[in-house]
Amino acid sequence: MIRTLALGLVAAASLSTVAVAAPRSADAIRSVEASAQVDPRDGGAQIELANAYARAGRSGEAATVYRRALTLDNVMLETRTGDSIWSHQVARHMLASATVLAAR
């Protein structure tokens, strides 16, 4: 099943250009947290939550959730631009490319 990242994970042809476009406000983050709690085994929801934390500057929490996503099934995600990408690919890239995230 392909899940569309409603929060707008943007991936271009090169994975090095992945950027997150998740909510910054506390209310928006609470909404994403609630969605992720509905099915905590949903790798796509965990990626969305990690993106929301990263965008809000909550890098430690983002790293924890990206790592959690790596323990779940590798699911196909659809980006806002219509590209497909695996959840583990996103999590690994975000952990490796963000020194702050990888160090925590």
Rank of each mutant, 00 (worst) to 15 (best):
M1L: 06
M1W: 09
M1K: 05
I2A: 14
I2L: 13
R3K: 15
T4K: 15
L5T: 12
G8L: 12
G8H: 07
G8I: 04
L9G: 03
L9I: 15
V10M: 14
A11L: 11
A11E: 13
A12M: 10
S14P: 04
L15G: 03
L15Y: 01
L15H: 03
L15T: 04
S16A: 14
T17K: 13
T17W: 12
A19H: 01
V20D: 00
A22Y: 07
A22L: 09
R24H: 06
R24W: 03
S25C: 12
S25L: 10
D27A: 14
I29V: 15
I29N: 05
R30M: 08
S31G: 14
V32D: 06
E33A: 06
S35H: 12
D39C: 06
P40K: 05
P40Q: 12
G43R: 02
G44S: 10
A45R: 04
A45S: 06
Q46M: 12
Q46P: 02
I47C: 08
E48C: 14
E48I: 00
L49N: 01
L49T: 04
L49C: 07
A50R: 03
Y53P: 07
Y53F: 15
A54S: 10
A54P: 02
A54L: 13
R55L: 11
A56E: 04
A56C: 06
A56K: 04
A56L: 08
G57Y: 00
R58F: 02
E61N: 13
A62D: 12
V65N: 02
V65Y: 11
Y66G: 05
Y66R: 09
R67D: 13
R68P: 00
A69I: 02
A69M: 09
A69R: 01
T71L: 12
T71A: 14
L72P: 02
V75W: 00
L77T: 02
R80G: 00
T81D: 12
T81Q: 10
G82Y: 06
G82K: 07
D83P: 00
I85W: 00
I85F: 02
W86L: 13
H88W: 05
H88A: 00
H88F: 00
Q89H: 07
Q89S: 01
Q89G: 02
Q89E: 13
V90A: 03
V90L: 01
V90R: 00
A91V: 00
A91L: 06
A91G: 08
R92L: 15
M94S: 08
L95A: 07
L95N: 02
A96P: 01
A96Y: 08
A98M: 12
A98L: 12
A98Q: 07
L101T: 07
L101I: 09
A102S: 11
A102G: 13
A103I: 11
A103M: 08
A103D: 14
A103E: 15
R104G: 08
